[in-house]
Amino acid sequence: MGQHKISSERLLIERFSPARMAPYQATAGSPRAAIKLYRWNAEASAVVYEALHVFEVVLRNAVHDQMDQWHRAQGRQGSWLTHPPAELTPRSKTELQQARKRARNRLAEKHQLTGVSAPPPVPTDGDIVAQLTLGFWRFMLATRYTHDLWRDAVRYAFPHLPHQRLPDVEAPVIRLHQLRNRIAHLEPIYTRNLSLDFEDMKLVLGFVCPRTQAWFASTRTQSVRDVVQAFPLAGAPGPQQVVGRP
């Protein structure tokens, strides 16, 4: 009662919050165009996140496999996930501890639903790996590990990396971690060159396994291309025309 009638676009901007929509309005120039851009951003995020899903799973499994082999070759107790090497930073050790806790809690919740009185199962390495974030694996590729973990274990996760140079794989993974965080926090990605981001994913996957890279490209290229070409603002540079990398 007493409220002024407003357009659907302005209503949506109020619902999404003016602060969140401000960048979209500044880029698009009008409330209607801003809503179109916001919708496109959500759709593009879904497509890119699906590709990132494959990238992240392949990356984490490749690094985990080599760390596991190195840990066992050293004759060390347990798993590198439960008995982390001294070379890991305190931050990474804390993240491992938190991942183990989340894995235990998840298994306990599932076990409780069964009604069985026996203790819940102990988390496997796979359970723990599934609870680790892309940020954890990104920091496993930090240059601080060049002369220990990279040299002794992690580099073997990328058998097709030319010259085995850590910065050559670290840089694209950093960019993709930033992209994933933007999507996870529902932030704009139209300011990025999504085609270059997709090339980063293919590049890293190729370092791991060219056959996996080929499958990834054959199943994801068209969807990424389609969403880039569907950019709704004819008068503004689209995500494929953004110059350079973030």
Rank of each mutant, 00 (worst) to 15 (best):
G2N: 08
Q3G: 11
I6N: 05
S8V: 13
R10N: 13
L11M: 11
L12S: 08
I13P: 05
E14G: 10
R15P: 08
F16Q: 08
S17F: 06
P18Y: 13
A19D: 13
M21A: 07
Q25F: 07
A26R: 15
T27M: 15
S30G: 03
S30Q: 04
R32M: 09
N41D: 09
A42P: 01
E43L: 14
E43W: 11
A44M: 02
A46R: 11
V48R: 08
V48K: 07
Y49M: 15
Y49H: 12
E50N: 12
A51S: 15
L52E: 04
L52H: 02
V54E: 10
L59T: 00
V63H: 01
H64W: 07
D65Y: 10
D65W: 07
D68I: 05
Q69V: 10
R72Q: 15
A73C: 10
A73S: 12
Q77N: 07
G78S: 12
L81A: 03
T82Q: 09
H83Q: 09
P85H: 12
P85I: 14
P85Q: 12
L88F: 12
R91V: 14
K93D: 04
K93L: 03
K93A: 07
T94R: 13
E95P: 05
E95L: 13
L96I: 00
L96M: 06
R106N: 13
R106M: 10
R106L: 09
L107T: 02
A108P: 04
K110T: 13
Q112V: 07
G115Q: 03
V116P: 06
V116R: 14
V116S: 14
A118T: 15
A118V: 08
P120V: 02
P120Y: 01
P120A: 12
P120S: 06
V122K: 13
T124Q: 07
T124R: 11
D125L: 04
D125I: 03
W137E: 01
L141R: 00
A142F: 08
A142D: 15
H147C: 09
D148Y: 02
A153Y: 00
A153M: 00
R155C: 11
Y156T: 05
F158V: 00
P159T: 05
P159V: 03
H160V: 04
L161W: 00
P162S: 01
P162L: 00
H163I: 10
Q164E: 08
P167C: 00
P167T: 01
P167Y: 01
V169T: 04
E170K: 11
P172V: 04
V173D: 03
I174L: 15
H177A: 12
R180Y: 00
R180W: 04
N181C: 04
A184Y: 06
H185V: 00
L186F: 14
L186G: 08
Y190C: 03
L194Y: 05
L196E: 11
E199G: 11
E199A: 15
D200P: 02
D200W: 01
M201V: 00
M201A: 01
K202M: 10
V204D: 00
V204P: 00
G206L: 08
P210I: 08
T212P: 05
A214D: 11
A214I: 06
F216C: 00
A217E: 14
S218Y: 07
T219W: 10
R220F: 12
D226Q: 12
V227E: 05
V227S: 07
V227I: 15
A230M: 06
F231C: 01
A236H: 15
A236C: 12
P237S: 03
V243L: 15
V243P: 05
G244K: 02
G244S: 07
